[in-house]
Measured scan of single mutants.
Amino acid sequence: SSRTRFTDYQLRVLQDFFDANAYPKDDEFEQLSNLLNLPTRVIVVWFQNARQKARK
């Protein structure tokens, strides 16, 4: 499967949200999905990866 290429804007929004809340609710994932024009699944995985990185 091909990797999603995030724009700088998408990454900034995701990172800002993550800094405020590492565990979004379903409706928040949906809002981010609509805002960033990305599939919810891609955003869910991004947050999983970000939490892994933050733990190191």
Rank of each mutant, 00 (worst) to 15 (best):
T7V: 03
D19S: 05
Y23E: 14
N34W: 03
F47G: 02
L14N: 00
R41N: 15
R5P: 13
N21P: 02
Q48C: 07
N34P: 09
N49T: 09
D16N: 07
R12E: 04
L38T: 08
R12G: 06
N49P: 00
P39I: 01
D8L: 05
Q52T: 11
W46E: 02
L14W: 00
T7S: 07
Q48V: 10
N21H: 13
Y9C: 07
I43D: 01
R3S: 15
S33G: 10
V13C: 06
S33V: 04
L36I: 04
L11V: 13
A20Q: 09
N37K: 12
F29W: 06
A20E: 09
Q10G: 01
Q15A: 08
Q15Y: 03
Q10R: 02
D26P: 08
N21V: 04
N49C: 08
L35E: 10
N34G: 11
V42H: 13
F29I: 14
Y9L: 07
D26R: 08
T4V: 02
A22T: 12
D19P: 02
S1F: 05
V13T: 09
D8N: 06
F17H: 15
N21G: 05
Q52W: 07
V42W: 08
V13P: 01
L32F: 03
P24F: 03
L11P: 00
K56R: 11
Y23M: 13
V42N: 12
F18Q: 06
S1M: 06
N37A: 10
D16Q: 11
S33F: 00
L35W: 08
R41Q: 13
E28C: 03
F47C: 02
F18V: 04
K53Y: 09
V44C: 13
F6P: 01
A50G: 05
R3Q: 15
T40G: 07
F47A: 02
Q31C: 11
K25S: 09
F6M: 14
Q31E: 10
R55M: 07
S33C: 03
L38Q: 08
L11M: 15
F17A: 14
L32P: 00
P39A: 05
V13M: 15
L32Q: 01
R55A: 08
V42F: 06
S1K: 06
P24H: 00
L11T: 14
K56I: 05
T4F: 13
E28F: 03
A20D: 10
V45D: 14
D26W: 05
V44T: 11
Q52N: 08
V42S: 14
L14V: 04
Q31W: 06
N37V: 09
A20C: 04
F18S: 05
F6S: 02
R41Y: 09
N21W: 02
Q31V: 12
S1D: 14
F47H: 03
R51H: 04
Y23A: 07
D26V: 11
D27Y: 08
R41K: 14
Q48H: 04
P24I: 06
N21F: 03
A54I: 13
P24D: 03
Q15C: 02
R5M: 15
L38M: 11
P39W: 00
A50M: 13
F47M: 11
R55D: 10
V42C: 09
I43E: 00
L32C: 02
R5K: 15
V44W: 10
R51T: 05
V13A: 12
F18R: 03
L35M: 14
V45H: 13
F6I: 08
N49V: 05
L14S: 01
V44P: 04
K25W: 03
R41A: 13
K56H: 11
K53T: 12
K53V: 10
D8R: 08
Q15I: 03
F6W: 02
E28N: 04
T7E: 12
A50V: 05
R51F: 03
L35K: 15
K56D: 11
Q48F: 06
S2D: 15
Q52F: 07
D26I: 13
S1Q: 03
D16F: 03
T4D: 14
T7D: 06
D27S: 10
Y9A: 14
K56T: 11
Q10P: 00
D8V: 04
S1L: 07
L11F: 05
F6D: 04
P24W: 05
L36T: 13
N34M: 12
F18K: 03
T4C: 02
F18A: 06
V45T: 11
L11A: 07
Y9R: 07
A20H: 10
V44I: 07
F47Q: 00
P39L: 01
D19F: 05
A50P: 00
L36M: 05
T7N: 03
R5H: 15
S1P: 02
F47Y: 09
D26T: 13
Q10A: 02
N21M: 04
R55I: 10
D19L: 00
R12C: 03
N49Y: 04
T40H: 09
D26S: 07
S1R: 10
D19W: 05
D26G: 06
R3G: 15
R51I: 12
F17K: 13
N49W: 06
F6L: 05
R3I: 14
Q31D: 07
A20Y: 06
F18G: 00
L14G: 00
Q48Y: 04
I43W: 01
K25G: 09
S33R: 11
Y23P: 02
W46K: 01
S2N: 12
L38P: 00
Y9M: 12
F47W: 04
K53A: 13
K25H: 06
F17E: 10
V13L: 10
F6H: 02
R41G: 13
A22H: 09
Y9V: 08
R3C: 15
E28M: 05
N21A: 04
T40R: 09
Q31N: 15
Q52E: 12
F6G: 02
F29V: 10
R3P: 14
F18E: 03
W46V: 01
N49D: 13
D8I: 02
T7R: 03
K56F: 10
F18W: 04
P39S: 13
A54L: 02
Y23K: 09
Q15V: 05
R3F: 15
Q48E: 14
T40F: 10
D26H: 02
T7P: 01
R3L: 15
I43H: 00
F17G: 04
S2C: 09
R41L: 10
R51L: 09
E28A: 07
A22P: 14
F47I: 04
K25M: 04
N49I: 06
T4A: 01
A50Q: 07
I43F: 01
A22M: 14
Q48I: 10
R3K: 15
L11S: 13
Q10D: 03
F6E: 02
F18I: 06
N21I: 04
Q15N: 10
S33N: 02
R41V: 14
L38A: 05
T4E: 05
D19G: 04
R5D: 15
P24V: 02
V45Q: 13
Q31T: 13
S2G: 12
L36S: 06
R55N: 07
P24N: 00
Y23C: 06
I43N: 00
K25L: 09
W46N: 00
A50R: 11
R5G: 15
Q10M: 07
V45L: 09
R51C: 08
F29N: 03
Q10V: 01
V44L: 12
Q10N: 01
V13E: 06
Q48M: 07
P24G: 00
R12Y: 03
K53S: 13
T4P: 08
K53L: 12
R12V: 04
F29D: 00
E28Q: 08
Q15H: 11
F6Q: 02
R3M: 15
L32H: 01
N37T: 07
L36N: 00
P39E: 11
E30T: 02
Q52H: 10
R41F: 12
A20F: 03
P39N: 08
K53R: 09
V42Q: 11
L38F: 03
Q48L: 05
